[in-house]
């Protein structure tokens, strides 16, 4: 990609930076700046292309997520970061017109391979969504949902323990231990999101994908979730999509910058935010657009 191209993209108003624009992008000659590969990769994507019908949303992205690291993905709206995240646990399968090409591996195993079971995959690669979405069930049942489906507990006592451990890890236990039978929908927004995190970690996933988990929360609740992410990385590998650059800078070790379906730059979070090497990255993080 040339500088002239980049200027042209920069001039596109944000509302128009969507899937439509990408039809005119020449994929052939772009190259990700920085080091997309790591040594201890938990998940690795190679030459991933994602299409919604005729439109290409992700173009030839190759990226590793290292074991026990937090990788943040940033970029303007419509840049494909959520699409990429959702292809990591095949949530895109729900959308009938969506096709994923390329190779995505979890522990060296192709997750789009013919023998792969999406049910097991999603148990290993959990997801936390943008809007807190607890089930209209009790707090206990929300957390117990996954373990029940996957048969992880063989007795009431085991289930109780899974629920307590998960809620503790999501640092929600102290707040809800006396009201476990109350509906999860009755909690505050931040508590609901931590409940969703507890629900996701109750099935002991290896990777947790977070799709803008704090965008519906106030700054205090956001701070708690960020602290939580910091603790969770001891046990889990985390990929987080965020619109907040401060958040990416605070929680992640590596940062990937997406632009119009392309992975423009990836690298150490500190380097990305202090010395971006690509002009688009620099424009974005300095707030010139996006």
């Amino acid at each position: 990609m040339t500088t002239a191209d980049a200027k042209a993209y920069g001039a596109v108003p944000q509302e128009a930076v969507g899937l439509d624009v990408q039809d005119h992008v020449d994929v052939a000659d772009y190259q990700t700046i920085g080091e997309p590969y790591v040594e201890n990769a938990k998940m690795s994507a190679r030459n991933v292309n994602v299409y919604y019908g005729e439109k290409q949303a992700i173009m030839d992205v190759s990226l590793d997520i290292g074991e026990n690291e937090v990788l943040s993905m940033i970029g303007p709206s419509g840049c494909g970061k959520s699409t990429f995240l959702r292809s990591l646990n095949r949530m895109n399968d729900i959308i009938p017109i969506c096709r994923v090409h390329g190779d995505i591996q979890l522990d060296g195993e192709d997750i789009y391979g013919s023998g792969q079971d999406t049910v097991l995959l999603r148990a290993r690669v959990g997801m936390v969504f943008q809007k807190p979405n607890p089930f209209p069930k009790s707090i206990y049942e929300n957390v117990a949902y996954g373990p029940r489906i996957h048969g992880l507990a063989h007795s009431k006592a085991e289930m109780d323990e899974i629920v307590e451990t998960s809620l503790r890890r999501a640092s929600l236990w102290e707040e809800v231990k006396d009201v476990l039978d109350q509906p999860g929908t009755g909690l505050s927004g931040g508590q609901q999101q931590r409940l969703c995190i507890a629900r996701a970690i109750a099935v002991s996933p290896e990777v947790i994908l977070m799709d803008e988990p704090c965008s519906a929360l106030d700054p205090i609740a956001t701070a708690r979730i960020e602290e939580l992410i910091d603790e969770l990385k001891e046990r889990f590998t985390i990929a987080i999509v965020t619109h907040s650059m401060q958040q990416a800078a605070r929680v992640s070790q590596r940062t990937a910058y997406f632009h119009l379906g392309k992975l423009i730059e990836v690298g150490d979070t500190k380097q990305i935010f202090t010395m971006p090497r690509h002009e688009l990255t620099e424009n974005y993080i300095t707030g010139r657009f996006g």
Partner: peptide, 19 residues
């Protein structure tokens, strides 16, 4: 969001419907 939450946990479609 309810469907996504359940499917994202690794539930099948029929589990999602029933539960």
């Amino acid at each position: 969001t309810m469907r996504e939450a359940s499917l994202g946990m690794g539930a099948t479609m029929s589990e999602t419907i029933r539960k």
